[in-house]
């Protein structure tokens, strides 16, 4: 037994890479549809809040991520845009991350086109501007100064739905889907808290524990945590998107890691040298 564990503990880690690869690949080749997905309270709260917004409410969505975090954040962004379109809310999209500019545009356009929304009347994509915090503080004063033109180079003053959206406080709800900084905490500190704008958002898995404090304090009306949160939102929206399909693989991978951690701990205790013996 002890030798077996000693061997296991010294195993080349590339075997683990292979196992993880297999665990994630199997559900791609053959979906397992594992049961048990249930919406957590912060996701449910966000859904309920959007459900409660009257038609025509103005929503700002900032896609603050780059291609490296796209798999975690794009599904939740798409689900929220889809929900807003379904509720006929006015969506203004933008990004604080230069490398996220085209990603954000793709998400908004594809969801809006699918919902039959009209550019300039139902949604607008402002694009990216440098300055991080300065962009947010500028938007508190006047969005038309920070973004004189949208991403299609049309003057904001000529876009119908932007006529009565001048400042951050004109929005009924703001979102940030953030992979890091500038992101959700930046929007809360420099934008939402100052202007008393309701804020919702989502983050990558790494940042979930540090963002959870804003849910507890009520600075966020709701929160989507990583791909799992996105899958929960898809469940509430009653459709099966990338996030839902990804849950099988992530569940298998997580079980594998949990099993390895337990095994390694048992191995550690069994192979531990008694005290006093060098």
């Amino acid at each position: 037994m002890r030798e077996l564990f000693e061997k296991l503990l010294k195993m080349d880690r590339r075997w683990i890479f292979l196992l993880v690869g297999i665990a994630l690949m199997v559900p791609i080749l053959k979906p397992l549809k594992l049961p048990g997905l249930k919406a957590s309270t912060p996701v449910q709260d966000l859904y309920t809040y959007i459900e409660g917004l009257p038609e025509g409410s103005k929503v700002l969505i900032s896609f603050d991520f780059d291609p490296a975090s796209k798999p975690e954040l794009e599904p939740m962004g798409a689900a929220i845009v889809r929900h807003c379109m379904r509720k006929k809310l006015k969506v203004v999209a933008m990004t604080l991350w230069v490398t996220g500019a085209s990603l954000a545009q793709r998400v908004v356009e594809s969801e809006a086109t699918a919902a039959g929304a009209k550019y300039g009347e139902d949604y607008v994509y402002l694009g990216w501007k440098p300055g991080n915090v300065a962009v947010i503080t500028g938007m508190r004063e006047d969005i038309h100064v920070v973004f004189p033109k949208d991403s299609k180079q049309t003057d904001l003053s000529k876009i119908p739905m932007m006529q009565d959206i001048r400042r951050l406080r004109d929005f009924d709800l703001a979102f940030s889907f953030a992979a890091g900084s500038p992101g959700l905490d930046t929007w809360i500190a420099y934008g939402a808290d100052k202007e008393k704008v309701k804020m919702g958002g989502g983050s990558t898995a790494v940042n979930v524990p540090s963002m959870a404090v804003f849910v507890q304090s009520g600075q966020l009306v709701g929160f989507i945590g990583a791909l799992r949160g996105a899958a929960e939102y898809e469940l509430l929206m009653n459709f099966s998107g990338t996030a839902t399909r990804g849950m099988d693989g992530i569940a298998l991978g997580s079980y594998l890691v949990a099993a390895l951690i337990i095994l390694a701990n048992i191995g550690y205790w069994l192979t531990r040298k008694p005290k006093g013996v060098a």
Binding site: V20, G21, E72, T204, A205, V206, V208, G249, I250
Partner: peptide
């Protein structure tokens, strides 16, 4: 511990997307 678990989950999400 929670942070570690979330990090692992996040990395799996990235890997899943690439494998897809």
């Amino acid at each position: 511990g929670a942070s570690y678990g979330y990090t692992v989950m996040g990395r799996f999400a990235l890997l899943y997307d690439r494998l897809l």
